[in-house]
């Protein structure tokens, strides 16, 4: 399957501090879970993939577009849906207004933007609340609206940074069903999380990051199989993940 995004030799950081070190990554259709402890570099990697920050080193290709300049980054962003960890919204906007506005930000052509906004809202099951102001919605609904704003226009690459933080169990189940449907439609989803349950539920592929490096990649079953005897964790996947981190010395 062809890569939607290719990162080669990526180095990233802020000032003198390196946050990502020599990272290679191919993102293909399906759901890639990015697991790692706080400070592992997951958010920085997603921001780099979203072309928000240029890498200090290395190359990025998004849907075949080499991203090396502002102009190329803007062109590439048409193919990227991005839900940041701290998702912002105008509380006075209705769901429809906001998703429609995000379609404009994404560069969805004007004649297609209305239909794209309606489709995205429908996809996250918010059609009945499309005229509601965002300030009147629950946290889960706002998060779904955020996903709608990320997928409006159906970009082939969707980046979701800690999307389940703060959601109750029911809302988390709703969210997972949305991600599964994206997977079923051959969208490439990168899901950054530190919740192993999310990975187990929706991911086809898992990348574990520690200290700015990708220390492991494989499917969830393999991750569960990496568990060492006596490893901490409440599930096989969690034990596998904790074993990997312990092996990397990332649990200090």
């Amino acid at each position: 399957m062809k890569s939607v995004a290719e990162l080669r030799g990526i180095g990233q950081g802020y000032g003198a501090r390196d946050v990502i070190v020599d990272l290679d990554l191919d993102v293909r259709p399906g759901v890639l879970g990015l697991l790692g402890p706080n400070g592992a570099g997951k958010t920085t990697l997603l921001r780099t993939l979203a072309t928000v920050v240029p890498p200090k080193r290395g190359t990025i290709h998004i849907c075949g577009i080499p991203v090396g300049s502002q102009r190329a980054a803007r062109r590439a962003r048409r193919h990227i849906g991005y839900l940041p960890q701290h998702f912002g919204f105008y509380p006075g906007f209705t769901v429809y207004d906001f998703v429609r506005y995000c379609a404009w930000l994404r560069g969805v052509p004007d004649d297609a933007a209305d239909a794209a906004a309606r489709e995205a809202i429908d996809f996250v099951n918010l059609t009945e609340r499309s005229r509601a102001r965002l300030k009147s919605l629950s946290g889960g609904m706002i998060r779904r609206c955020g996903i709608a704003s990320a997928i409006v226009g159906r970009p082939p690459l969707v980046l979701l940074d800690e999307p389940t933080v703060g959601l109750d169990p029911a809302q988390r189940l709703e969210f997972r069903s949305v991600v599964r449907r994206l997977r079923d439609e051959d969208t490439a989803v990168v899901l950054s999380t530190h919740l192993v349950e999310d990975v187990a539920a929706v991911c086809d592929d898992v990348a574990v990051m520690a200290s700015g490096r990708m220390v492991w990649r494989g499917d969830p079953e393999s991750l569960a199989g990496a568990a060492r005897p006596g490893a901490e964790g409440d599930s096989p996947l969690e034990r596998g993940y904790m074993s990997l981190l312990a092996g990397q010395g990332a649990l200090a």
């Binding site: 921001r47 979203a50 072309t51 928000v52 803007r74 062109r75 962003r77 048409r78 990227i80 991005y82 940041p84 701290h86 998702f87 912002g88 919204f89 105008y90 509380p91 995000c102 404009w104 930000l105 994404r106 560069g107 704003s149």
Partner: peptide, 22 residues
């Protein structure tokens, strides 16, 4: 200042639009 207060800075940075267009 609404953009800043609403926390939309990151989303705008990921936009295809130039800042002046936004």
């Amino acid at each position: 200042g609404r953009t800043h207060r609403a926390g939309l800075t990151e989303q705008l940075s990921a936009s295809t639009r130039a800042r002046w267009q936004v």
